[in-house]
């Protein structure tokens, strides 16, 4: 994960999100709904966004990338420039999803952004600014 290897000992049924937060102290990944609806817990596995709250950790195979692993991604600065956070709780998941999107589609259209980001809810309603942040992520 994030270029490192960790050994953890947890019971079957434990979620990836719980291991990240409670075992490894990587609390950048947030848990909001805890049932796979909101996207706050999004991480990448081999570059593909997944919901860590409903992913059982024993079934994960591949390189996990969390928001901590994207510390130096240009999207972080772009979200700040666009003022794309309000309370900030959904922001880690937003950036993890956006990073996967721009890796596949470096110049996404507004429609691609709306489709690709549809699994990340923001209850503050910063969607227009998130869209701007992703449109201009390389500026």
């Amino acid at each position: 994960m994030n270029g490192h290897r960790y050994a953890v000992d947890v019971p079957v049924g434990t979620s990836l999100a719980a291991v990240l937060r409670d075992e490894l102290g990587l609390t950048g990944t947030k848990v909001a709904c805890n049932e796979g609806h909101c996207g706050a817990c999004t991480v990448q596995v081999d570059g593909v966004p997944r919901l860590s709250c409903i992913t059982l950790v024993h079934t994960v195979e591949g390189e996990v990338t969390t928001i901590e692993g994207l510390r130096d991604h240009p999207l972080v600065e772009s979200f700040v420039r666009a003022d794309a956070t309000q309370c900030g709780f959904c922001t880690p998941g937003q950036i993890v999803s956006a990073a996967a999107l721009v890796a596949v589609s470096p110049a996404p259209t507004r429609d691609e952004i709306r489709h690709g980001m549809a699994g990340n809810l923001c209850r503050c309603g910063t969607y227009p600014k998130i869209e701007e942040a992703i449109l201009h992520w390389r500026d």
């Binding site: 796979g36 609806h37 996207g39 999004t42 593909v48 966004p49 997944r50 919901l51 409903i54 992913t55 999803s97 489709h115 690709g116 980001m117 549809a118 699994g119 990340n120």
Partner: peptide, 12 residues
């Protein structure tokens, strides 16, 4: 498939 769920759920 495209309309079924969020990108994360469709990938899983």
């Amino acid at each position: 498939c495209r309309l079924a769920a969020s990108p994360q759920l469709r990938a899983m």
